[in-house]
């Protein structure tokens, strides 16, 4: 009798196809579990947001950080987006003498689509990343645990103000973006391309309906909540020290950006 077991044959390398399928499958599982986690968190946040004590100080700090702090960068992005857009469309419309439509085209695209999407992307990069790293660091250094031992609910104390800030401030920034964008478009169209100010303004007024502005604002609110929820969720559940926080932030940025584009499509369908 021998105690030696025959050495197993080396496992065959899984084929490229199998590997891709496996990695796709893993990605899908990650997506589903993140969505599940974010939705659960959303209910938790909703429940805690209507309970006392209302933490106004924390809320104002976040409104300031997410909203006021993003004014410059969102305004600037809006201005340039409007300018570029006016430049491009006027060139195209000039081909069939329809320059008068530059104003309405820029206005509709901005209010319905671009303002909300771009504002939310800027907020994700500026405020979302900070939310995620801050919460992640608090988690891995046990500051979240410390809050809990002091009988303070961390969802209420840390997350509710951030999610509400996303909900209130991104729509405002969306309006700011559109306004800045239209200003930029006006200067390019009127100043640079010689379209008459009267044509630009009256045509825009004729075409733009309040409902277009509502659409942008609603999208802003939806994106604001989803971005804040995702960034908070990833940070709040970070583990594994500085490396884990970095990884959580990367994931949060990717997931937030994706959620903006997917929700943009979904809200678009619902509203038309």
């Amino acid at each position: 009798m021998t105690t030696q077991t025959p050495s197993k044959p080396a496992p065959s390398e899984p084929g490229l196809l199998a590997q891709s399928v496996a990695s796709f499958g893993k990605g899908l599982i990650d997506v589903v579990s993140t969505i599940g986690g974010v939705v659960t968190l959303a209910f938790d946040v909703a429940r805690w947001s209507v309970r006392r004590p209302f933490r106004l100080q924390n809320l104002f700090a976040q409104l300031d950080f997410v909203g006021v702090g993003s004014i410059f960068i969102v305004g600037l992005t809006g201005l340039f987006t409007g300018m570029v857009f006016a430049l491009q469309t006027s060139e195209a419309f000039a081909l069939f003498d329809a320059e008068s439509l530059v104003g309405p085209t820029v206005a509709l695209t901005l209010t319905r689509e671009l303002a909300a999407v771009f504002s939310a992307l800027m907020v994700t990069m500026r405020a979302g990343s900070a939310m995620c790293t801050e919460l992640g660091t608090m988690r891995v250094t046990e500051q979240v645990d410390a809050l809990e031992t002091m009988a303070v609910n961390p969802v209420q104390y840390l997350l509710v103000p951030r999610i509400l800030a996303g909900l209130f401030m991104v729509p405002m920034l969306t309006i700011l973006f559109s306004t800045a964008g239209m200003t930029g478009a006006y200067f390019v169209a009127v100043g640079g391309l010689g379209i008459s100010p009267g044509t630009f303004l009256t045509r825009t007024q004729q075409w733009l309906e309040p409902v277009d502005i509502y659409e942008g604002v609603i999208k802003g609110a939806v994106f604001g909540v989803s971005v804040a929820l995702i960034c908070c969720y990833k940070g709040f559940n970070a583990s594994g020290g500085a490396k884990g926080v970095g990884q959580a932030t990367t994931e949060a940025m990717v997931a937030s950006a994706l959620s903006i584009f997917i929700l943009d499509f979904i809200v678009g369908i619902v509203m038309h």
């Binding site: 046990e142 500051q143 410390a146």
Partner: peptide
């Protein structure tokens, strides 16, 4: 959570790495 919060009011805890709020 609510009951737990009530019980936790009886406690104080010192963490191994202090866990101070760094903000």
């Amino acid at each position: 959570v609510d009951d737990l919060q009530r019980v936790r009011n009886k406690f104080g805890m010192v963490f191994q790495a202090a866990a101070l709020f760094d903000s």
